[in-house]
Design a protein around this nucleic acid. Structure first.
Length: 278
DNA sequence: CGTTACACCTGAGGGC
DNA sequence: TGCCCTCAGGTGTAAC
């Protein structure tokens, strides 16, 4: 759990990697402005995390595809560094920053540093001044965890784009990614490539319910550790073991036995059961 | 405005 | 061993 260990703690020390695609705010500025600040609150906005600090500034984080946010006392095989080498361990077995470690926050009460690692650098960190907004946050639609049929259907009924692309559009729905779009559409019985404006009201009802259920279950099980994701404790999540279709092409459908297929929808790898999904 | 293609970045794995 | 290809939990932007 990130929040109980982080909120209320003071940032005592900051280590940043070199400037890169990862940093929306130059690392040098982050290193200057964070030390001494207490983390007052942490909230999730879609796939973003927003920490509010005692000086009224905020720290905005996004994990991208391969981002890892964990405490340095974590031990996990997914923290392998270059060429699948186990990470070096410092005193007390603590994680030692490698070339993919972009941000480390020393914390007064958390018991270990908070580490942000990201191989591909699609993750992001940005420091927001007091009252400053961010266009990424401003554009987010309603949270997917509590999506309702009506607004989703209203957004989709005007569009010819595939239903899956609609679910991935963060302006329509904030928080659904490629795994959960495929999984939700499986549970709803709707093919990912179907045009959004040709999905019935009854189907939108099932899609909305499936999005809520799949995301809630993923939170319960700690997320999907398929390539890089780790929980803040360093442990793997459990939702990868509950996947019905994602990255299961060629395997028999758990409901009917038909081979799961993989197609490309909206430039994203997409998986479905041709029998269960129409 | 809606839709699509592509760029960004790094590494793993497969074929030859 | 090396080279070249494809693929990967995301999103911003350009072009039609």
């Amino acid at each position: 759990m990130l929040l109980p260990r982080l909120v209320g703690s003071r940032i005592t020390r900051v280590h940043c990697g070199p400037p890169s695609y990862f940093f929306l705010t130059p690392p040098q500025r982050i290193g200057q402005e964070l030390p001494g600040q207490r983390v007052d609150t942490m909230e999730r906005r879609g796939k973003y995390l927003l920490l509010s600090l005692s000086n009224r500034a905020s720290l905005l984080l996004h994990l991208g595809m391969t981002g890892q946010l964990f405490f340095a006392d974590a031990a996990s095989p997914r923290l392998m560094t270059a060429r699948n080498q186990a990470p070096a361990r410092g005193k007390h077995g603590l994680f030692v920053p490698d070339s993919h470690t972009h941000l480390v926050l020393g914390l007064s009460t958390a018991g270990a540093d908070l580490v942000f690692r990201d191989v591909r650098k699609f993750g992001k960190v940005r420091l927001l001044a007091a009252g400053q907004s961010d266009p990424r946050l401003d554009k987010l639609g309603p949270d997917a965890l509590s999506v309702e049929t009506g607004p989703l259907q209203a957004a989709g009924s005007k569009r010819t784009t595939p239903i899956k692309t609609l679910l991935l559009d963060q302006r329509v729905l904030a928080g659904v990614g490629n795994i959960y779009a495929d999984e939700a559409l499986f549970h709803a019985g709707v093919r990912p490539g179907r045009a959004a404006n040709r999905v019935s009201g009854k189907e939108y009802h099932r899609v909305a319910a499936a999005v809520r259920r799949v995301l809630a279950r993923s939170i319960e099980t700690g997320g999907s550790s398929i390539s890089d994701y780790v929980r803040p404790s360093g442990a793997d999540g459990g939702y990868q073991n509950e996947r019905r279709v994602y990255a299961r092409q060629g395997e028999p459908c758990s409901a009917c036995g038909t081979a799961i297929r993989r197609i490309v929808v909206g430039q994203r790898s997409s998986h479905f059961c041709p029998t269960c999904q129409r």
